[in-house]
Design a protein around this nucleic acid. Structure first.
Lengths: 155, 155
DNA sequence: AGTCAAATAGTCAGAAATAGTCAATATAAT
DNA sequence: ATTATATTGACTATTTCTGACTATTTGACT
């Protein structure tokens, strides 16, 4: 049971362990070359093995000099938050629900008062309606980003 | 992450830090020579990293003896923040410009590192593209909300 | 003062260098 | 045999970099 995808997964996780870092930066094309496969195979690995719910977060930049980063999320933190991330991923979120969630984060001391106010100015803002029909999907995606950031080890 | 553009950006910012001055005068062609690139690359760097909204202002003179100056704008008090808000309100904002502004707010201690990470996870996120053609207008509006909140609240 | 050459800087379209998406196909597991 | 997982490649998206062309300023020479 050693598929290409699994070997790439192992390679990346070993690299993180070696560096003893919570953040690893790689180039898609280079990785693909190392494993003699198509670049999109790397995306497959990231999508199936490094999802937020699995404790990793991936960000990337295209263009010349582009690359992607894999960030390890904290495991010592509240598992309730992780559950939330999974739930949030599934559906849209109304303004009221988002406000409620932010309030809860404040009450449970996951965020400070100031952070709450800043985030609230965004999440419960009228301007999200610039996204038209996607307003609630956008709000949900933004809330997920917030939770993921709270789970970052270096937060 | 070390593109030519980033290295030139760093070079300029280091120079400013060294001189401990808020104003730096450079020659486009000389800079281009130092980095062995075409002169227009310098314009690219200025346009993407030293915009007014990012806390820098560039002024230039053509002709023999021409050069350009980079002036570091201060965003250290409320009235300057207000000015920024006005400017921002007028136009759309790219992801990179927004990141630059957040960086500046962090540098000037308007926001903490954690606040920076939270806001950055939102403002520079892919998901804003859910707003379609309005992505940059949305980003601009959100940045405005953030600044207004910073003003309103006793941080 | 007027003209022209030289020395700057600016603009913009497109090439180059990345990464992402999606659907078709192949392989493995049940 | 059917379903789940893995692999590939064609097409798309984004960011950076380059070069040809344009604009402005100065200075020297009528």
């Amino acid at each position: 049971m050693s598929t290409l995808a699994s070997r790439i997964e192992r390679y990346i996780k070993d690299l993180m362990a070696e560096n003893d870092s919570d953040c690893l930066e790689l180039k898609r094309n280079e990785l693909a070359q190392i494993f003699t496969c198509v670049p999109s195979q790397i995306n497959y690995v990231l999508e199936t093995r490094f999802r937020d719910e699995q404790g990793y977060h991936v960000v990337s930049r295209r263009g010349a000099g582009g690359c992607f980063q894999i960030i390890r999320l904290s495991v010592t933190n509240d598992s309730e938050l992780k559950e939330l991330i999974t739930k949030i991923s599934e559906k849209d979120m109304s303004r009221q629900t988002a406000e409620g969630l932010l309030n809860r984060l404040l009450e449970e001391d996951f965020i400070t008062k100031n952070e709450f106010m800043l985030l609230n100015s965004i999440i419960s803002s009228e301007v999200l309606s610039l996204a038209g029909d996607n307003e609630n999907a956008l709000r949900s995606a933004l809330m997920k980003n917030i939770l993921v950031t709270l789970l970052r080890v270096d937060f």
